[in-house]
């Protein structure tokens, strides 16, 4: 079980990094979203894995999972939505303004003219 969660984190990180290094805004945004999942799950797993013991207090139950990482990750999920929305908006605005969705600046003016409409 631990192996599965850890490897899932690893796979999502690897995918996130690869997509983050692409040249267009959309895959980069998706890559960052994947990284967000990986980071959130990693933070969550810092409370260790517990099955069937949600942190809802009830009589006669003495084992609960660690609630603190959950609280931190919950706000992180919501905030990352806000941040994703901002980044998407910036990417979209840049594309609408220049008809170009590259994330890198053009190398120089000559290149700019050559690939201006690509």
């Amino acid at each position: 079980m631990e192996f599965l969660v850890a490897s899932a984190i690893g796979v999502m990180t690897a995918g996130g990094i690869y997509l983050m290094l692409r040249l267009r805004t959309f895959p980069v945004i998706l890559g960052i979203s994947l990284l967000t999942y990986a980071v959130n799950v990693f933070l969550f797993s810092s409370g260790r894995l517990t099955v069937g013991a949600p942190p809802i207090l009830s009589d006669g139950v003495s084992v609960y999972t660690d609630p603190l990482p959950q609280a931190l990750v919950l706000t992180a999920i919501v905030i990352s939505f806000g941040m994703t929305a901002v980044v998407v908006m910036i990417g979209l605005g840049a594309f609408l303004g220049s008809d170009d969705d590259h994330v890198d600046d053009p190398i120089d003016d000559a290149d700019d003219k050559a690939e201006g409409t690509s």
Partner: peptide
């Protein structure tokens, strides 16, 4: 890029895996 991504993935995997199999060093709050 794929090499970098795989290295990053392996690193986080190893970190998470080691982490999950060990208790916290201090007492959590």
């Amino acid at each position: 890029d794929a090499g970098l991504a795989i290295a990053g993935g392996l690193a986080t995997f190893a970190l998470a895996y080691y982490y999950l199999l060990r208790d916290a060093v201090g007492t959590p709050i």
